[in-house]
């Protein structure tokens, strides 16, 4: 049975997508102004994926995230102010400045961490799924990663174990066509990466990653399957990132195959598309503007919080290595 996103949740879904969008735009601003140390991998363009998937989760479920993790965290309800402060390396950040963009964790939200190692988080999320079975809970774990990560051994090892042991883990492939500059089609013969599920005897589903309702439907079914003890699912979301691999990457490689590639994908903007759906579902322009205004207030507060937060004291570099 196909699960559909209920109309009454449309407002919340739009709020999440719009928040991600605005959050990333502000991160980009910090970068351009030279206020952000290091780099960030923006989620702009992929908002429907994290939003649709996380809408299918319960509060106590787990997610594992990747280097492109801001969207996953926003979708899981992490605090945007603490995320922003972390990205700036400030004391008010989730990790008090020790993690940065690629390592934001919010354990209280079941977010087992963004991860700087491609494929590094996949076994960790799988272990969380084992842990849920072990403790006899109804929890599931979601592992988010890119097309590129599916060529890491950890992907295959993890999916194999989850399939063998029917673990409640959902593997979300965000196929945005590229791993940095390398086109997945140049290094992998499998057109639909979800086809790999066949090798493990589990369901593999391909969805339009620009359509939040489609993502939700696939994720909800996978979550349901997992909660019933039937094991993992691979969901491949076909999507695209607006920006280069990270802020500052001119992404010259995109035009190699198709000069209009970026333009074509941007025309399918998931945030704009869902805004139109929301209006079509009966929401007034004023109601939507109110949502946007609320998000804007949160984002501006997050920006201010991050800017105002002090840098950590240098002595803190020595904390939290080992307990005791």
């Amino acid at each position: 049975m196909v699960k559909k996103l209920a109309k009454k949740s449309f407002g919340g879904i739009y709020e999440t997508m719009y928040k991600m969008r605005r959050f990333e735009e502000e991160v980009f601003e910090f970068y351009k102004k030279g206020l952000m140390p290091g780099l960030a991998h923006l989620y702009l363009g992929e908002e429907a994926v994290a939003t649709g998937v996380c809408a299918a989760l319960n509060d106590d479920d787990y997610i594992g995230s990747s280097h492109r993790g801001h969207g996953h965290l926003v979708a899981r309800g992490a605090r945007t102010d603490m995320m922003m402060a972390e990205i700036l390396g400030k004391e008010g950040g989730y990790s008090r400045g020790k993690g940065g963009s690629m390592h934001i964790m919010a354990m209280d939200r079941g977010i087992l961490g963004a991860n700087g190692i491609v494929g590094g988080e996949i076994p960790i999320a799988t272990g969380a799924a084992y842990s849920a079975v072990y403790r006899g809970t109804e929890q599931v774990a979601v592992s988010f990663f890119g097309d590129g990560a599916t060529n890491e051994g950890t992907f295959h090892e993890s999916v194999n174990m989850a399939a063998a042991w029917k673990l409640p883990c959902i593997y979300i492939i965000e196929n945005n066509l590229y791993g940095i500059s390398v086109d997945i089609r140049d290094v992998t013969n499998t057109r639909d990466l979800a086809d790999r599920a066949k090798a493990y005897g589990i369901p593999g589903v391909v969805v339009d990653g620009m359509d939040v309702e489609a993502v939700y439907a696939a994720a909800a079914e996978a979550v349901d399957h997992a909660r019933k003890g039937k094991g993992p699912t691979i969901v491949e979301c076909k999507t695209y990132r607006w920006q280069g691999h990270h802020v500052g990457d001119p992404a010259v490689y995109r035009a190699r195959r198709d000069a209009d590639e970026k333009k074509d994908w941007m025309e399918r903007c998931p945030v704009r598309a869902f805004r139109a759906k929301l209006i079509a579902s009966g929401a007034s322009e004023a109601a939507v503007a109110a949502i946007e205004g609320e998000v804007e207030r949160e984002i501006q507060a997050a920006v201010k919080y991050a800017v105002d937060s002090p840098y950590p004291d240098a002595s803190e570099a020595f904390d939290d290595v080992l307990i005791g």
């Binding site: 960790i124 799988t126 272990g127 969380a128 799924a129 842990s131 403790r135 774990a141 090892e157 174990m161």
Partner: peptide, 24 residues
């Protein structure tokens, strides 16, 4: 509680990390 794993060292060590993060 006593689990024979496949021959996937990165995989099952990583699963151990996920277990440890979630209460085991």
């Amino acid at each position: 509680r006593v689990k024979d794993t496949p021959i996937s060292e990165a995989g099952f060590v990583g699963m151990g990390v996920g277990m440890a993060l979630t209460g085991l």
